[in-house]
Amino acid sequence: MKPFAYTRPGSAAEAVREVAVEPGAVFLAGGTNLVDHLKLGVARPDLVVDVRTLTSREITDLPDGGLRLGAASTNSEVTADRRVRERYPVLAQALLAGATGQLRNAATTGGNPLQRTRCVYFQDVTTRCNKREPGSGCSAVGGYTRYHAVLGVGSAMPDPTAPETCIATHPSDMAVALTALDAQVQVLGPAGERTIPFGELHRLPGDHPSRDTVLEHGELITAVDLPPLPSGARSAYRKVRDRASYAFALVSVAAVVAGEDVRIALGGMAHRPWRATRAEALLTGGPLTEHAVAHAMEVELTAAQPQPGLEGGNGFKIPLATRTVVATLRDLTAEALR
């Protein structure tokens, strides 16, 4: 733990300016992830800029029939919003599947998707981690990989000494739902405002596993927009985990079925929420039979790389993901028939 300065600027623009000029500055919103990392020594900022009251906490209707979630709205508030529950059940279910009541009361729309990828070695400063200390190596490869990625990693057992190696997964349930919903992220940065499609917010480790998102230093999420879903659309979130509550996903599925259109996003599978575009392409327009869905998922997961490791590794995620998608779409389809 190291001391840091703390400020509460008067506006979002001011907060952005403060962070932009200080390389060691971070934004603080709900703090449910950052504060842990401060205590663990994983995050060692010089300046913490509190933005909790600087962005909107409102959930407002958009002219196109969508919703705008102010960045400061809490996970609990979004879950409780009737419009969200009625129009975007996948999001309400994902939020309710995350963390605990206490954490959901603190976590925000802007902060939740920006929690860091999860890995026990990332969280332990006595171990090597390319994300925490670029170039130091990856302790997770061949270690405790139960919660780690099978998609977006080049191989089973990538080189643990290579500086780009990282097999962590992104833990946000909300982000998986927002990926399936084609949400838009409103960002305020030193260079002004921009909009990022939610599916492009998070990144694979690539050559820089220390970077979880495409946000530049000083960029602040001010809102997340949910586009309208076609009428008759149905959506659901299914999270499979090791205990009934308060556990990260082994595999999760956010699914939207709207007429001929099928959208599938997977959690717990990769360094970012994973949009199953190949499966979607195969399923769009066709009947959603169990066989068809299972086949589409097989294609989607062709490139999956099970990571060996302690307790048998994480190869089980591959059949589990397929089974969970099949079950989720089966339930959505059955719902439609009722």
Partner: peptide
Amino acid sequence: VANHDLAEYHITVNAD
């Protein structure tokens, strides 16, 4: 122990 905190070391919760 790789999972040395209560987020990763799972103890049965009320929902279980």
